[in-house]
C-alpha cells in the first residue's frame, strides 16, 4: 500500500526514515529499505540532514523505490534557490516519486560545511505553495506553464514542542492554507503537549485538510537521551521520560527506551485526529518491525512497484 492509499482508506499510516550515506554506495540505501519493506507505507529520504553532505534525497528516493520501499523525498530550502527547488520537484515527478516533504532545513552553521552559503531563497511555507501551484495549476512560481504535471503528495513538518507553543498550530495552519496535505511532527515524548496542539488544529479545521503523522522514536541509551535533551534544537524530552530511563539497570535502558516508544505510539494513536506515525530510529532500522508489531500495527501489504509514480 502507498501513503496516498493509506490516507484515502483512512488506515493508520506508518512512515519511517532512511538517511542516505556519505559515500556513493547504493547498497547503504538498499539495506535500510529491506529492513523496512513490508512494514511501512513509505520512508522519508532525508536531504543532507543536519547540513552534512550526503547522497541526494532524489537519488536516495530512486534507490529506495528500486528496493521496494515507497519514498517521501525530503527537500530543504537551505541549499537551493527557487530555480533548483522547482527543478528537483519536476524531476521527482518525472521519476515517479510519490511524495515530497518540504522544509526549511537545518542551518549550515552546525553542519560539516559551516562556511557554506545558506540559501533560503524561499521559506518552507512558500515552497509548499509553489509546489501545490506546480501540481494543481501546472505553473511555476514565475507564472510559466509546465507541460506534464508532477503527481506527488505534498508534505510538511511541524514541531509542536518548540516555542512559541501557542503559535505552533497556527503556523501549521499557514502551511496547510499554502497547500500541505500531510504533516510529520518532531519527536513526541510528551503526549499531553502533543494532544493539546492537535486539539487546537482540530479547532482551526486543519485536520480536515491535512493528515497528521506523529513523530516517534526509541531513546536507546542515556547518552542519546542527554544528546536529545541538550544537543538537538527543537527536541523536548520531559524529565519524566529521563527518570524512567535512569530508573532501570544500564543493561536494560535500550529495552526500556523501545518500550517507551511502543507506548507512545499506542497513546498518540488514541488522540483524535492522528492519521499515523512517523518512526525515526536512526541506526536502529532493524528494530522498526518489532516496535510496530508490539504497538499492534500489522505489516503493510507489499508495495506494487507498478503503482508507484502513477498515483497522481
Amino acid at each position: 500500500m502507498s501513503l496516498r492509499a493509506a490516507f484515502a482508506a483512512g488506515r493508520f499510516a506508518v512512515t519511517a526514515e532512511i538517511g542516505p550515506p556519505r559515500g556513493a554506495d547504493p547498497d547503504a540505501i538498499t539495506r535500510k529499505a529491506e529492513l523496512l519493506r513490508g512494514w511501512v507505507d513509505a520512508a522519508n529520504v532525508t536531504d543532507n540532514q543536519g547540513a552534512h553532505v550526503r547522497m541526494s534525497s532524489l537519488a536516495g528516493s530512486v534507490l529506495a523505490m528500486r528496493a521496494g520501499v515507497e519514498p517521501v523525498m525530503q527537500l530543504t530550502c537551505r541549499d537551493r534557490n527557487r530555480i533548483a527547488l522547482q527543478s528537483d520537484l519536476v524531476s521527482a515527478g518525472a521519476l515517479g516519486i510519490p511524495n515530497v516533504l518540504l522544509l526549511s532545513g537545518d542551518h549550515p552553521r552546525f553542519g560539516d560545511h559551516p562556511d557554506a552559503a545558506p540559501v533560503f531563497d524561499l521559506d518552507s511555507t512558500q515552497l509548499v505553495a509553489t509546489a501545490r501551484t506546480m501540481r494543481d495549476e501546472g505553473v511555476l512560481a514565475s507564472g510559466r506553464e509546465i507541460g506534464a504535471r508532477p503527481g506527488w503528495l505534498v508534505g510538511a513538518v511541524e514541531n509542536p514542542f518548540a516555542p512559541p507553543r501557542s503559535f505552533r498550530a497556527r503556523r501549521l495552519a499557514k502551511k496547510v492554507a499554502a497547500g500541505a496535505e500531510f504533516v510529520q511532527t518532531q519527536y513526541v515524548f510528551d503526549v499531553e503537549v502533543f494532544a493539546a496542539w492537535l486539539a487546537r488544529l482540530r479547532d482551526l479545521g486543519v485536520t480536515e485538510k491535512c493528515k497528521v503523522l506523529a513523530g516517534v522514536g526509541p531513546i536507546r541509551s542515556l547518552r542519546v537521551c542527554e544528546f536529545l535533551r541538550s544537543g538537538v534544537p527543537g527536541i523536548h524530552v520531559p524529565d519524566e521520560a529521563e527518570r524512567r530511563l535512569r530508573g532501570v539497570p544500564a543493561a536494560r535502558v535500550a529495552e526500556e527506551g523501545v518500550s517507551m516508544c511502543v507506548e507512545t505510539i499506542q497513546r498518540v494513536a488514541a488522540v483524535p485526529g492522528v492519521a499515523g506515525v512517523h518512526v525515526m530510529a536512526f541506526g536502529y532500522e532493524r528494530g522498526v518491525p518489532e516496535i510496530l508489531e508490539r504497538a499492534g500495527i500489522a505489516p503493510q501489504p507489499a508495495v506494487s512497484m507498478e503503482g508507484l509514480g502513477h498515483a497522481g
Binding site: 521559506d123 511541524e158 512559541p164 503556523r171 527543537g234
Partner: peptide, 15 residues
C-alpha cells in the same frame, strides 16, 4: 538566519 517570513522554524530552544 534562515530569513523565514512566515513564522519561526522548529529549532527554537525551550527558552
Amino acid at each position: 538566519p534562515k530569513q523565514l517570513r512566515n513564522g519561526p522554524c522548529g529549532g527554537v530552544s525551550p527558552t
